[in-house]
Design a binder for these strands. Structure first.
Length: 504
DNA sequence: TAGATTACGGGG
DNA sequence: CACGCCCCGTAATCTA
């Protein structure tokens, strides 16, 4: 969180003209923290308004909604309006959202400022080898693709790819893009066509590697602050409709982990000399919250017994023993578990798993017979949202969804799915935020530094001789932050790098 | 030429 | 008809 000096607006670095200025802005925050200023949590009308209505994400919307005015251009007027809004908002807050604001969001702003100012060490040298390797492979792929196609061809252009695959090569398109009805060339489509023509697997590999080079390997080194040698992200506290944080400039909440080609990038995120990275992440927290909210007996019992839900689903889908479930199968089951809970259709399930539509329909029927509480939760949440026009998470964070009563079915279904999802995702966000606020002072006492939050994971830099204490503290704080019908479980790991610390 | 839109794919 | 949700960044392409 950064202050713009005129009110209390968290400023995304995207509004700043260049990474260089972004670095300067971070330096100012560091100076303020070192000087002992900025440590007292200040009230923030935008945070107050956001908790009560997550659509209020900017000062412009704050002014429009709560002062029926435009957000002024002049700093003095901004300050005056901010002060006026503080008074009216403070007086009008609901008790639940007041607690969420005072106990979570307001103190969290200070924690986030520390995290941003601290940054995380990033070893540029270590990545140079991988970058060169992927660049050479990309050149190989381009040559091979060129050879097969017989003419110059820009692999990164989905329009050119569409023409090549479906017009020249006569392959069968699967589905259309959402807004312009073009024939889709996305990963799902290409994977289905993998064996239809030898160029397709080459294009798939090119896509994956180009993504890694263009999104991570080339930009990240440029974001390293020359003064600190570290990456300083910005956390936007008032952006997500569900109450989650967002990370930007650079985004450190989407660093690759799922594929072999991308995972090594996490190895460049490392601890300072004399420190180790400690990673603590909630296991299956969204499903546990769903179990709590729905009270589904089967789900609650499974979690109480410490069973692996994704593994169980994977075994059922594949019709195999629990022990025979592979990493990929479990990952697919994860998609099914979360997808079905949030409205995934039979068609969507069939597309993602290779089942026929009939099989998918039967599977969904079985799934909801197995978990009747989930079905009831879905029905009841939609009903409440249609009645009130909003949904809330466990702590009273509110998301308005006016589309819930839209006449168009597609728009309405989308709104219904969002309504089902928000109380779960929002509770998850509130819970880990609360854990951050509670753990932060104790971490400081141990000489440790909170560095990153990735939705269900915290990353901490701990002195080498305090690793065990820090791990225990994180586990205790994260599991104890709220009492649910099911236990919360936390996996803790540590290592010299993020890769080692998190499931490495 | 610059900004907006679109498709795509990385994470949870 | 279409049909998991929440984000952010990149590249190509469109539009002013």
């Amino acid at each position: 969180m950064l202050l713009d000096g005129t009110g209390s607006r968290p400023v995304g670095l995207g509004e700043l003209p260049s990474p260089v200025n972004a670095v300067d802005a971070k330096a100012l925050v560091r100076q303020a923290l070192w000087a002992g200023r900025g440590l007292e949590a200040g009230d923030d009308p935008l945070l107050m308004a956001y908790v009560e209505d997550t659509r209020v994400t900017t000062p412009e919307k704050l002014a429009e909604r709560h002062a029926r005015a435009a957000w002024p251009a002049a700093a003095a007027e901004r300050a005056a309006l901010t002060r006026a809004l503080l008074g009216t908002l403070r007086a009008g807050m609901r008790p639940a959202s007041r607690r969420l604001y005072e106990e979570v969001e307001r103190p969290l702003a200070t924690v986030l400022a520390h995290m941003e100012a601290t940054g995380i060490r990033f070893d540029v040298e270590q990545l140079a080898g991988l970058t060169g390797q992927l660049r050479r492979r990309l050149a190989e792929l381009e040559a091979a693709i060129q050879e097969l196609v017989g003419r110059p061809f820009k692999v990164s252009s989905r329009d050119q790819l569409e023409a090549l695959l479906f017009d020249e090569l006569g392959l069968a398109p699967s589905r259309q893009t959402a807004l312009t009805n073009k024939r889709s060339t996305d990963n799902e489509t290409l994977s289905a066509l993998r064996d239809a023509h030898p160029v397709v697997p080459l294009i798939l590999e090119h896509r994956e590697l180009a993504k890694l080079v263009g999104t991570y390997l080339e930009p990240l080194p440029r974001w390293v602050n020359p003064q600190t040698g570290r990456l300083h992200t910005t956390f936007d506290q008032t952006n997500a409709a569900t109450g989650r944080l967002a990370s930007l400039n650079p985004n450190l909440q989407n660093i690759p982990i799922r594929t072999e080609a991308g995972r090594p990038i996490r190895g460049a995120f490392c601890a300072a000399e004399g420190y180790r990275l400690v990673s603590a992440d909630y296991s299956q927290i969204e499903l546990r919250i769903l179990a709590h909210l729905s009270g589904d007996p089967t789900l609650v019992r499974a979690f109480a017994l410490g069973e692996d839900i994704h593994r169980i689903t994977a075994a059922r889908v594949a019709g195999i023993a629990l022990e025979a479930v592979t990493r990929e199968q479990r990952s697919q089951a994860k998609t099914i578990n979360y997808g079905l809970s949030y409205g995934l259709s039979a068609v969507g399930l069939a597309e993602r798993t290779g089942m026929s539509r009939g099989e998918a329909s039967r599977f969904i029927k079985r799934y909801f017979e197995e978990y009747p509480g989930i079905e009831a939760y879905v029905r009841e949440t939609k009903r409440l949202c249609k009645e009130h026009g909003y949904v809330e998470d466990l702590f009273g964070r509110r998301r308005y969804i006016p589309d819930i009563n839209a006449p168009g079915a597609a728009i309405r279904v989308r709104a219904e799915n969002a309504a089902i999802n928000m109380p779960v995702q929002g509770a998850c966000a509130s819970i880990i935020k609360k854990a951050m606020v509670e753990a932060f002072p104790a971490l400081c006492e141990l000489g440790a530094r909170l560095l990153l939050q990735v939705h269900d994971e915290l990353v901490v830099e701990a002195p080498e001789d305090r690793v065990e204490e820090v791990g225990a503290l994180l586990r205790k704080t994260m599991t104890g932050v709220v009492e649910l019908a099911v236990p919360l479980e936390v996996e803790v790991g540590h290592g010299k790098t993020w890769l080692e610390a998190h499931g490495g």
